[in-house]
Nucleic acid binder design. Structure first.
Lengths: 138, 138
DNA sequence: TTTGTTGTAACTTTTTAAATTACAACAGTA
DNA sequence: TACTGTTGTAATTTAAAAAGTTACAACAAA
């Protein structure tokens, strides 16, 4: 299995906000129309992004806006805000502790996979919302 | 979401084979005992590893063995052999093509995510079964 | 021919994401 | 104040995928 589409949905939403900010009222309905998902999914996603300090949302009146400069919002920020389980790999639960291999898998393999994970994360951190906005309509 | 436990299960199986080769008869039951999964899962996994030229399996008589030197089996080899969908990120299906952002998400974001993916894969390729075997019982 | 094993298909269980429904809380406006 | 459009959030449903399990034919050696 792989990561859910939460990262791409969240990135899409933020690209919309960055692109349309000032021109359109960015309600969850409007954003849902571009992403083509249910408005409630947009609201939940915005809720997580708000908690992470990435967007501001006006309750009641409606409308979302970026809380930081697009160059200061990275894919890692979005990823961490939005994915519940950020672990890339998933260990099988109960290797046999009686077996020398079963006893060692988790520490040995886990250490290696953690380095893969952090390589991925630093790569995500090197890409900003600004980089994405530059590509729109090009 | 994240990758299934297929990679860790497959790596565990291969570590067992590398470790016990020559000392034990490596049947799916024996391997299942160390990994602590159903023997059928082991057989399915071995089937994929066999197709990828990583192991040899004796039908009838039973028992698995490595088809290559452990230093020539990387985590990327195992990963590719065993995961059905190797895509790390998952795109939402139907962004609105009427919207300039909806039209651009896939190409723009997809290109960036592909670079993240290949960074991860080259990292996986740098770790061999030999590296894992060295860590056992240490 | 008997025994122990692999290869596979089919089915069930469990888990997770995403869609959906519903409604209270909120903030402006008439 | 009442009305309107919106957010926040809980609860439920639907859909998809992984892993567990059962069952059995094919196989290879003794």
């Amino acid at each position: 299995m792989r990561y859910s589409s939460r990262l791409t949905v969240a990135a899409h939403i933020l690209m919309c906000i960055g692109y349309f900010q000032g021109k359109e009222k960015l309600t969850s309905d409007f954003l849902a129309g571009s992403v083509n998902v249910n408005p409630v999914v947009v609201r939940n996603t915005l809720g997580k992004l708000k908690k992470a300090g990435i967007v501001r949302v006006e309750a009641g009146i409606g409308g979302a806006s970026l809380a930081r400069d697009p160059s200061d919002i990275t894919l890692l920020d979005i990823f961490s805000a939005v994915e519940t389980d950020t672990d890339l790999f998933h260990f099988h639960e109960n290797p046999n502790p009686q077996c020398p291999v079963g006893r060692s898998v988790h520490p040995v393999l886990g250490e290696q996979l953690a380095s893969v994970q952090s390589a991925m994360e630093s790569h995500l951190a090197s890409i900003s919302l600004n980089d994405l906005l530059r590509g729109i309509g090009k």
